[in-house]
Every structure is written in C-alpha cells, then in structure tokens.
C-alpha cells in the first residue's frame, strides 16, 4: 500500500514521547486558516507553475506529473511558495515497506514513530501496514490527527495504533466550520472514543491572540476558553489520562488571512493554563 509522503524527520523531539521518527503524509481533509504548513494540504495537480520557477532546475514535467530531482534540489522551498494549489512537488509516493526500511535505520535511537501530516487518517491501510511492521520491531506507534476521520470505522488501524494526538481546533461547530470548512461532530466522537479506549495521548489546542476575537463577529475565530471547558466536560472521567498541550499560535509559514496575525502573549497563555487547571486537567504544557 502506498502513501504520498511529504517528508520524514529521522529524529524528532516534538512529536510525542521520547525520540521518534516522524512521517508527514501529504494531503488534508480540512483547510485551517492558521495552517503553518499549507503546502501539505493537497496533492499536486500537475499545473506546472512551479517547474519553470525552480532556480536549481530540479523540477520537470512529464505529462501531468512533476518530476523532482532530489539530488539537484537545494531545498530553497521556492516551489512551495509559488504553488497556488497548497501542494508541493517534492512529494514521493512510497510503499509502507520502503518507508519502514528508512525508519528502521534509526533503531536503537528511537522509541517509536509518529505519523503526522497533512492528515494521517486519509491513509488508514498504508498506516496499518507500517504500524504492524514498527510494532513488531518493538516501537510505539502514534498518530497525529485533526480528528476529522472517524477512527471507530477503522478497527484494524486502531488495533496497531498505541496512541493518538488529537487536535481540537474549536468547540462551537459554526466557529469550527468557519476556521476549517468542516463539521466538528466527528472530532468530538473521536475524542470520546479515544479517551474511553485509553488511546488518547494528548489533546492539542492552537491558541490565537485573544484580543482579535472580541472584534466583529466574522473575525471572532476561536474562543479558547470555550474549547478548554468543552473538552473538560466531554471527557471528564479521563482528564488524568492524557496531556493538554496549549500551542502558542505563531505565524511562520501561515498563508492567507492570518499570515500577519500576532501571537498571544505569554500572559494570555498562562491565563488559559490556569483555566485548564481549574477545569481538572492534570498535565498541561504550553509550547
């Protein structure tokens, strides 16, 4: 089974417990306004726009397919910036066994692997195959997901997944829709399911600068306090079993209406943490 792989980080210290290899798949089922790697959202449609703009001549077109010559590429990322389609020409379709062969070189330095994206939930069969191989080698297998694919419908994948890191981007369904273009009932369903079966590793909240959310209603993106209270109420019996990660929004890599948006202050982040403590979360981290 193949998947479109955007990149692999052999040694990551920010994608779950311990040292892990992180695999980033290409393609996402939502489009967040604050996405900080928008070039992972869609698959290349072969429009060819990036090809002529590559300063190193690493790209060429063969029919509708872009060919990327990794040996010539200087990783300047210009292609990604000019792509009008939120895609990247530097993506490889890889078999699970080939991805595994790359990852296995990192043993004994890693304790597990994490599949992130894009959205990992778009490649359930590929990941099932990859996780089976990794699990047999004694590595822990994590998913990093936006929660918009219903995990209860993928029992085989869940059987080989140790834990999931779940984004909860907004609690109010209209706000969620405005931010991502999708409905968040599946996210809530996943939150419940994962907490109950003990597979929730952490819930991640991207925190925006609170000031702008008191502005006119179309600008009122996300009420973080609402998200924290919502999650706490929804999975109240399990609050000690997973981490809450409060992620400070930063505009690196962001494109579109939020690209100049300021980060929340440390003070605002601390206030959110206080609220989380009051709501009963045990392990809270601000990053």
């Amino acid at each position: 089974m193949k998947a479109a792989i955007n990149k692999m980080i052999p040694l990551s210290v920010v994608d779950g417990p311990g040292c892990r290899t992180a695999v980033f798949v290409q393609g996402c089922n939502i489009a967040c306004a604050y996405c900080h790697n928008p070039e992972t959202q869609r698959l290349c449609n072969g429009c060819g726009i990036c090809v002529s703009q590559c300063p190193a001549g690493a790209l060429s077109l063969s029919g509708k397919n872009v060919i990327w010559d990794e040996a010539v590429c200087t990783q300047c990322d210009h292609c990604i910036r000019v792509c009008p389609n939120y895609a990247s020409p530097k993506v490889r379709w890889m078999e699970a066994v080939d991805v595994w062969e790359q990852i296995s070189k990192n043993i004994p330095f890693i304790q597990g692997i994490t599949v992130s994206g894009g959205e990992c939930g778009l490649y359930p069969e590929f990941i099932t195959e990859l996780f089976t191989l990794a699990g047999n080698a004694g590595l822990s297998c994590f998913l990093d997901s936006n929660g918009c694919v219903d995990f209860t419908k993928h029992p085989k994948l869940m059987a080989v997944t140790d834990k999931v890191m779940l984004d909860v981007k907004a609690w109010d369904s209209q706000v969620f829709h405005r931010l991502t273009g999708k409905d968040n009932s599946v996210v809530k369903k996943n939150l419940n399911y994962l907490a109950k079966v003990g597979k929730l590793y952490e819930v991640r909240l991207v925190c925006l600068d609170g000031e702008s959310s008191s502005g006119p209603s179309e600008d009122k993106e996300v009420d973080m306090e609402d998200v924290i209270r919502g999650v706490a109420a929804e999975v109240n019996p399990y609050l000690e079993d997973f981490k809450l990660k409060l992620i400070t929004f930063r505009n690196y890599g962001v494109r579109g209406k939020m690209e100049n948006r300021k980060s929340p202050t440390q003070n605002q982040m601390e206030k959110l943490k206080e609220l989380a403590v009051q709501c009963g979360f045990k392990e809270i981290q601000i990053v």
Binding site: L11, V13, G18, C19, R20, I107, I110, Q285, V287
Partner: peptide, 12 residues
C-alpha cells in the same frame, strides 16, 4: 521540553 528523547539517544 522532552528530556526523554535525549535519554533515548543516550541509551541507543
């Protein structure tokens, strides 16, 4: 933020 990761490297 993740000393366990450094320990993994040391152990390996």
């Amino acid at each position: 933020n993740n000393p366990a990761a450094m320990l993994d490297i040391v152990k390996g």
